[in-house]
Design a protein around this nucleic acid. Sequence first.
RNA 1: GGGCGAAUAGCUCAGUUGGUUAGAGCACCUGCCUUACACGCAGGGGGUCGGGGGUUCGAGUCCCUCUUCGCCCACCA
Length: 834
Amino acid sequence: MTSVQDRTTLPDRFDPGATERALYAAWESAGVLTADPAESSRARGTRSPFVVVIPPPNVTAVLHMGHGLNDTVQDVIVRWRRMAGDLTLWVPGTDHAGIATQNVVEKQLAAEGKTRFDLGRDAFVDRTKKFVEETGGVILQQLRALGCSCDWTRTAYTFSPELSRAVREAFVTLFERGLIYRGHRVIHWCPRCLTSLSDEEAEFNDENGNLYHITYPLVDDPSRSITIATTRPETMLADVAVAVHPDDDRYKDLVGKMVMLPVANRPIPIIADEYVDREFGTGALKITPAHDANDFEVGLRHKLDMPIVIDAEGKMISGDSLPTTQYSIPKTLLGLDRFEARKQVVIQLKGLGRLEKTEPRSHAVRRCYRCNTVVEPRLSDQWFVRMKPLAEPALAAVRDGRIRVLPERWEAVYIQWLEGIRDWNISRQLWWGHRVPVWYDGAGKPHAFREDPSPETIKKLDLKYQDEDVFDTWFSSWLWPLSTLGWPDKNAADLKAFYPTDVLVTAPEILFFWVARMIFAGYQFAGEAPFHTVYLHGTVRDTQHRKMSKSLGNGIDPLDVIKLYGADALRWTVVSGLGMGTDVILDPQDLEKSFAPGRNFVTKLWNIARFLLQNIGDRTPPALDTIDAKSFASADAWILSRLDAAIAECDAALGGARPPNGAWPLDERFRGLRLDEYAESARRFAWNELADWYVEAVKPRLQSASADGDVARAVLLHVFDQALRLLHPIVPFITEALWQRLPGRPAGAFIATAAWPRPRGGSVERAREFDRLREVVAGIRQIRGEYNVPPANMLNATIVGAPDLEPVIARERAFVTQLARTDITFAAAAPAGP
RNA sequence: GGGCGAAUAGCUCAGUUGGUUAGAGCACCUGCCUUACACGCAGGGGGUCGGGGGUUCGAGUCCCUCUUCGCCCACCA
């Protein structure tokens, strides 16, 4: 009787659920996933470091297919480099995700009928911290199920004491360098999150609205009026002027005159400003400095009042914080939501006969990227980073190839954005996040501190209070490659050994949010780019090409897939379908369709191994290198040459791991990391060449205990071992499970750290011979297929006119018989026949 | 409004610098439970390479134009 443990037998099927977890634990406990900084060639060691930092998922996130894609890609690259001999490190971690996490906790509070203000700042932060400690980081556990070979000893968190120190250091350094300033201006404000947002966080959407044409009568002569056009009539209550273009002949005589603002009933001047577009609407523009970023600029130029009529929650207000009481708004509008106020203002304008026309119009509306609320332009004081000086080296680095962005077209997008970059609003009116380390003195002057000021300092500088705001989440994640490696401690072992990192893998959506800013930070704080390659992959979509999302209910849970098909199947599907920059299309309604190919391939590998173990079992054949090439059969030479070709193809598809001499030469710049091509080359070798031809061809020889049988066993073992290695980065579990059962493996060895295959060279002549045999076999099979000739070994095929094949087939008749399922004889060649 | 990209087999995509009968996976059709594998094996059908025009001995590949999608950016209210 045989048991499962028997070396010569395997169960019928690979059971991922029963093996994946144990394999992962074995890697982890054997230290396969960790990297010792002392071994780095940048420290005392000799090994080239290869480092990837994970795009930190939100600490409250659970794994979705987007992560499945992103992290599989990283793991493939990391495992490839680990096998290639690099000192490989993949740093995992999570992001405290200020606004997103705060929203989650606020929702919980809302369910209890409370707001964060009921708790107060400290209690709210405590509660959030507790929530994160209790439920956060689930995703890190899930990444293990995916097979991600992260170094968990280095798990980082953007809100940890260490990383918080980095955030503070970065802010104070920029403050000292004059790259940070406090600005009073109109910013994007989310009335639901009650915080400001950066330009990137306020996303554009084209939406249908109305363009209202409103007539403002002249104070001098109410029979005359000027017509303005606006999509937001409710803001007219804060109008302080009407602007026309200085060269607009239609309005030249009106400049300087006063018009009476309807509804509000107060006079405002007509001014001239170059900003106005004569072609748009009526060529006359209402100016509302506190509620429109452009009007704010006009207001500054003309020294206009900047009354506010919409409060933080988007409700109409009056009086307070306004320069004079003249800006009070009608009682009927007080306290109304801005959209309701719009309706009411329109009704009132109609009643006054001041609404000339309403024109349906699609226009860009900005919405909060976290809660989708329409963003309100709001006049306020915020902290800004001057971006132009930071962007310059980042722009140069991409232009001269020190950093490449894949796929190529994103490089142009990157350059375009950097060329027109605007200052970054980094302060948020939230509670969950790094508090701005600024204290204001009695004169209102800000002082920035690396450490909280001592009582003596407070006294000396007459500090009154700390800034209430926290930083934009991205103000901590932009430091990620630095902070996770120990910066600002310039002597940190990891920083010396592993910075700069190598490849950054992420989605194009956060190219500006995160990737570009990390490059800024790299140059600003370390004088060096944080990585040399940015790999931007596509998006996971359903069959209708819609993004997978919770709200659409078209998502696929990666854990379901892992349970049903195994992690390898998931990884295979994702990688093999991943053209450079193309989206991955999956069918949430039909997991079988999407993931069966991966599972089937895994099963194929399993079955090759079953065959191999049955035929080799415990008898370890001689090492391939000890075999004289002369004793190879043509099939041996052929599969060895195909292996060399497959290795070369995989290497070519993967490309160079790092830029030679610090910058990517043009001919290499956009090559490499073609993971789908790599996957296909490795698959073709294992399945279409090794399994379909070699395994079949070698069957008769394995029956014998002769020397030739040993040659066959040695070659079979070698090429399967190499195939497993080529495939390991993509399907780590099955390859590790099988590789460990191969005869002759030393105890404690892992394919995860086994050497990446290299071409060995060999006789091409003998390989060609086998190609001739394959042609013959293919010919016979074709005829059999077309004429439906039943399979039978007694069938006799006669080959005419190929005398050069005769000796080959005579020698390797067993192959041909096996492969073609027929016997072969030769007829005399017809003389000079076509 | 500015910039970029894509349209190739029913579906998802490859097709490097223009060069012999345009490829892969899935799907489909026909045989086959051949002692590793039916999650498999063998064979097969299927494309006017979005439309039109041009350059060339030769174009899926270069140029122009039209159509349709997609992406990024943007202060026309």
